[in-house]
Design a protein around this nucleic acid. Structure first.
Lengths: 181, 181, 181, 181
DNA sequence: CTTTAATCGAGACGGTACGTCCTGTCTTATA
DNA sequence: TATAAGACAGGACGTACCGTCTCGATTAAAG
């Protein structure tokens, strides 16, 4: 039980700021959301936000990890479709795809965001599937890109996500992972 | 042969500005590229750019349409794979995916960009496939989203595009369009 | 009659910003006056202020030169007392000493402000006396420092300026300049 | 011999903090000196500084009183010129005028600083002269403002203090106090 | 050959977000 | 109670970018 010197950070701030971030980005998009606005919404000074996260991208990624949740544990047979379906459904959540599409935009120009996105979003998903199914890492990466990329792009062009598309994309990814490609 | 009164527009400006846009966005990304910078690079005043395009998004879309080119005409049998493969290969061009990913980011917040992207990028592709193959518009849209979305997302997370991925994604899309889904 | 290219600067902005600066600094002091506040008060964007003046000190000095006015022209005999008395009276104006004391504070740390203060405030006064009276530049500088310094310090410690002090300081300076020191 | 409950204050802290303040303000000026910086330089936590002094101005004033020292005791005839000359010479010390000019800047906007400056800097000087010489308080105040104000202003515009100026100003003040005005 | 009308270059302008800095207050554990 | 360490609120700073505007100068066709 270690004690670091100095005043401890307020324990509720992280959650409040993340929640404000999710709420505002879902409403107004990544670029339309100001750090000043997030701070005010969370009832916190802007300096406090910058003390805990290095940048807007860092904060949004953290909020995304939080709101995304963890892939379900394998519960018997058929968990492949279950896991992939869970991912597709999560992307369907407007909060999730708004946060994600903003980060993808940053990732193009910033290798650090790129790496963080791979490690904190794609990796847990990959770990689960590799462990439970013995799938190849490269195949899982591809399936992930197909599910997330297709649905994100669909959402960007259509404004929302059609359930039929979710199902079809899930089907495609499952087939890719089953080695039928 | 119509003549509007007043000084005619310099005929070479459009091409120069588009070329500067492609070059700069490919190098520095969408957000990292300034309109002042584009204008200077093209040897033109910022006013001239805004007289011809309504906004940064409008200009970038135009530059993208230009650099993307047109889907190849059907040349006999097998043009389905040919057309889809052409699209996938074009996304592999760094200039293309840099321009596109910036626009997708804008599209999320701006319905006008959304509509323009659908009409000027996806529509020509769809028209070609529907005309030549009798495919359903909804299926073509889906295939388009899978190809473009998957590859864009792959590029965003990896920094570049792997040829193996291009091939696999093409295969998946062709299968979707062949009605085997 | 030269024409520089580009949109000409709005001709009324300089005066409006200077006036706002004088008004606000007189009320709230140098440190208590924000550039945002000045801009808003002048009905102008902050960027416009920064385009015309390099820094807060630069702007305040300009406003001071404006509100200080010019030493009176010699009108016959006795203009020595007249000129010195004019200076002392101007320092008595709250706007003048508020602006000035702020600049003196900056001058201590910033040689550029120091030089500007010497050139734009003290020089015109010195020129007048040297030209009309043949006084030595060093003596005039000293007299200037005594008048301005004493009254500024008096104002800083008392909160306002006593007329008796103005008269005595004027007397001292005149005597210094008359060569009786 | 009173004992207050709790841990006693470290006895060396006051001196260390005052010394750090003098050193840093002399080097970088009042505004250029941070309380964080002072604390670090003194090897002390910022909290400790704020427990002992109410504000930056309060601390700097205290450091100034310390570094200024006390006017010399009358040693027979001629102590008027001696006392005034001592004051003028002390202002010539860069540390003294850097600290002082910063405080004068604060005094303009803050009546508390004004009062403290009068009481802790000017009062001892006044007391000495009134007691030993029977001079009027108003005259002493004026002489003080002339000496301090003139030299401070001279230093601010010139960057340093010329000895000739110190002598002349001393002379002027002595004459003012001798009732020859 | 003058008028008319639109273009171009150059740069000012409003508005808004950025990320940094500093003061003074606070909250812990430890002495 | 003092201290070290550091979190926190609040607010100013100066910079950057977008899209609009206002000029003078240019260029062609129309009168």
């Amino acid at each position: 039980m270690e004690h670091r010197p100095g005043r401890p950070r307020r324990p509720d701030v992280d959650a409040a700021v993340r929640a404000a971030t999710v709420r505002l980005v879902a409403q107004r998009g990544y670029d339309g959301t100001t750090l000043d606005h997030i701070a005010r919404e969370a009832g916190v000074a802007k300096t406090t936000v910058y003390r805990r996260w290095d940048s807007k991208a860092d904060l949004v990624l953290d909020a995304l990890v939080d709101v995304l949740g963890e892939p379900p544990l394998p519960t018997g047979g058929g968990e492949l479709r279950e896991t992939v379906g869970w991912l597709a459904a999560r992307i369907g959540d407007p909060a999730v795809h708004q946060l994600l599409v903003g980060l993808v935009g940053e990732a193009v120009a910033d290798p650090a965001v790129r790496a963080a996105l791979r490690q904190r979003i794609r990796q847990p998903f990959e770990d689960r599937l590799v462990a439970a199914w013995g799938a190849g890492a490269a195949d899982v990466d591809l399936a992930f890109d197909v599910v997330v990329g297709s649905l994100l792009h669909h959402a960007a062009l259509a404004g929302s996500i059609d359930t039929r598309v979710v199902d079809t994309v899930t089907e495609v990814a499952v087939r890719l992972l089953s080695g039928e490609a």
